[in-house]
Amino acid sequence: MTNPTTAYKVLTAEQMATLEHDGRFAGAPVDLEDGYIHLSTAAQLTETVDKHFAGKSDLYVAAVDLEALGDKILWEESRGGQMFPHLYGTLTLDVVVAYSALDRDDEGKVRLPVTG
């Protein structure tokens, strides 16, 4: 199975504003602590939100073009042995292909931002 070409970053409203205004985002506190920016695949996104952002509102989901990041992305084992995309570098607005406020469908799954 090949890795997907798009991954997702969950951002607070403040973090999203920084990305929009500055064109770059160095990472959330957990990212800075771990040394990389945590991303999730579409299949991992809802579990990530439920586990790490429970009870939080005012969240955004940014769709990130992994191919544009090239070797800055490493797939590494994390939660439950799953392989997650980790960005070793800064997230820049030019590799974000879409973003939207976090929303869920009728089944509770996080909706993906609509890409062009």
Rank of each mutant, 00 (worst) to 15 (best):
M1Q: 13
M1A: 13
T2M: 11
T2Q: 13
N3E: 14
P4H: 04
A7T: 08
Y8K: 07
K9M: 00
K9N: 05
K9L: 02
V10H: 03
V10W: 03
L11F: 08
L11K: 05
Q15A: 15
Q15Y: 00
M16T: 04
A17R: 14
A17C: 12
T18N: 04
E20W: 03
E20G: 03
H21G: 02
D22C: 11
D22K: 13
F25I: 01
F25S: 05
G27S: 02
V30T: 04
D31V: 00
D31M: 07
L32F: 08
E33A: 03
E33G: 00
E33P: 03
D34P: 09
G35H: 04
Y36Q: 04
I37V: 13
I37K: 01
H38Y: 05
H38E: 00
L39G: 02
L39F: 05
T41H: 02
A42M: 09
A43Q: 03
A43T: 06
Q44A: 09
L45D: 07
L45P: 07
T46I: 09
T46Q: 11
T46R: 12
E47M: 09
E47G: 04
E47K: 11
T48G: 04
T48S: 10
T48A: 12
V49I: 11
V49E: 09
D50S: 11
D50P: 08
D50R: 12
K51L: 14
K51Q: 14
H52L: 09
H52E: 08
H52Q: 10
G55K: 12
G55C: 12
K56A: 15
K56V: 06
S57T: 15
D58C: 06
L59S: 12
Y60D: 07
V61F: 07
V61E: 07
V61R: 01
A62K: 00
A62P: 09
A63T: 11
A63V: 06
V64Y: 00
D65Y: 07
D65E: 09
L66E: 08
L66R: 06
E67S: 15
D71N: 15
K72T: 06
I73D: 02
I73V: 10
L74C: 10
L74P: 02
W75Q: 05
E76K: 13
E76R: 13
E76S: 04
E76A: 10
E76M: 12
E76V: 11
E77C: 00
E77F: 10
S78N: 10
S78K: 12
G80Q: 13
G80I: 09
G81E: 10
Q82N: 13
P85L: 05
P85K: 02
H86K: 15
H86I: 06
H86F: 05
L87M: 03
Y88Q: 05
G89K: 01
G89D: 08
L91W: 01
L91D: 02
L91S: 03
T92L: 07
D94T: 03
D94E: 14
D94L: 07
D94P: 11
D94C: 07
V95I: 06
V96C: 12
V96S: 01
S100G: 11
A101V: 15
D103Y: 01
D103E: 15
D103L: 13
R104H: 02
D105M: 09
D105C: 08
D106R: 12
E107R: 14
K109R: 15
P113W: 05
P113G: 04
V114E: 13
G116K: 11
